[in-house]
């Protein structure tokens, strides 16, 4: 079908990026990592040979905005629910997840919070916003009902809702997607989390609302680490410090956002960038690799991308590449000269 053109795009990116700012002035992302994942492999409990995630490894520091990019079936959701500790009982996790140096099982649940793609599905439809927010605050901080109401109103103000008391009387179906997402963020903030997982929080929103929500997250990030799952490379590039690309359960490339955009090293990353339609200029054909993501049950011994890759070598068929490279950008590919 569509041919993969893996080289054509590097040059223009390199060119356009030279004009860009060299990188975020950076809210100092330092200190001990907030989230540290080592060798995380998730398999089906019934069929341990079916791996949904394989040897996933990365760290997040305070103030960092990490964009995780991947298509459906890449294992994004499994990763999020595993970190949140709400993974399905049909899965078995191997490897380690540490939050602030402590094992996930020993960590207080309120250290991590999550927001989702369709906030209205994650809010109870028959309870009003006030109830759900107050409940969260009450359970977490053991406040009285009156104190909880005040705290809930403060939280809503924090996420840019100016009429908190009016909003607390409303039900999720009476509000827009953007407002529901703000409420979800307020609930997440109630936990004062160290780690915020945002699973495509803006994909279902209009661009202007998306911008508001992203600005809000931007404002909040100094206190926490944000793991931002998205399939919008524009958002990933604009907002994140680092980008990780997940393909078929494996992180195939992790690097500083500007480096990944300027010189994507993995052929799949290149394919992703070339599939983005340009906003202006003369339209060209969009490039997209033929075929689709291999199902977890059909994954072979070699590189998962081998069957769709134009720069495939012999070694790709039988040996799975591992992440390697300079600290700012690592990639799992055998053919780095391609």
């Amino acid at each position: 079908m569509d041919q993969t053109s893996s080289h054509a795009l590097e040059a223009p990116y390199a060119r356009t990026l030279e004009h860009g700012s060299a990188g975020r002035p950076a809210i100092a992302a330092g200190g001990a990592p907030i989230l540290s994942i080592t060798g995380l492999t998730v398999v089906l409990a019934e069929q341990p040979e079916t791996r949904l995630l394989e040897a996933v490894q990365f760290e997040l520091r305070k103030g960092e905005f990490f964009a995780l990019v991947g298509e459906s079936g890449s294992g994004k959701s499994v990763l999020c629910s595993t970190i949140m500790g709400v993974a399905s009982s049909e899965l078995r996790c191997l490897g380690d997840i540490h939050i602030e140096g402590r094992r996930l099982s020993d960590v207080d649940r309120r250290q991590r919070a999550m927001i989702y793609q369709q906030p209205s599905l994650y809010l109870n439809p028959v309870r009003n916003i006030g109830f759900q927010l107050r409940e969260t605050v009450q359970v977490l901080d053991g406040l009285s009902k009156k104190e909880a109401s005040e705290r809930a109103a403060d939280l809503l103000r924090d996420v840019g809702i100016n009429d908190p008391n009016e909003t607390m009387r409303k039900y999720p179906h009476e509000m827009s997607g953007g407002m529901n997402q703000r409420v979800m963020i307020a609930m997440a903030l109630a936990m004062k989390p160290k780690l915020l997982i945002a699973d495509e929080p803006t994909s279902a929103l209009d661009v202007t609302t998306q911008k508001q929500i992203l600005d809000l997250l931007e404002r909040l990030r100094s206190d926490m680490a944000i793991l931002f799952v998205t399939h919008d490379l524009g958002v990933a590039l604009q907002r994140s410090d680092r980008i990780g690309v997940l393909y078929a359960g494996q992180l195939v490339e992790i690097g500083r956002a500007d480096l990944v955009a300027r010189t994507p090293l993995h052929p799949y990353t290149r394919a992703l960038f070339s599939a983005v339609p340009p906003l202006s200029g003369r339209p060209r054909r969009l490039h997209s690799p033929a075929g689709s993501l291999p199902e977890p049950t059909q994954r072979q011994a070699g590189c998962n991308f081998a069957s769709r890759c134009s720069g495939r070598l012999d070694i790709c068929r039988h040996t799975r590449p591992t992440l390697q490279g300079i600290p700012q950008q690592v990639v799992a590919c055998h053919n780095l000269e391609a």
Binding site: T208, Q210, L233, G234, V235, P278, L279, G281, R284
Partner: peptide, 11 residues
Amino acid sequence: AVPNSGLGLQT
């Protein structure tokens, strides 16, 4: 509001 309006730009 479109993030990174330059992305995908070739010419």
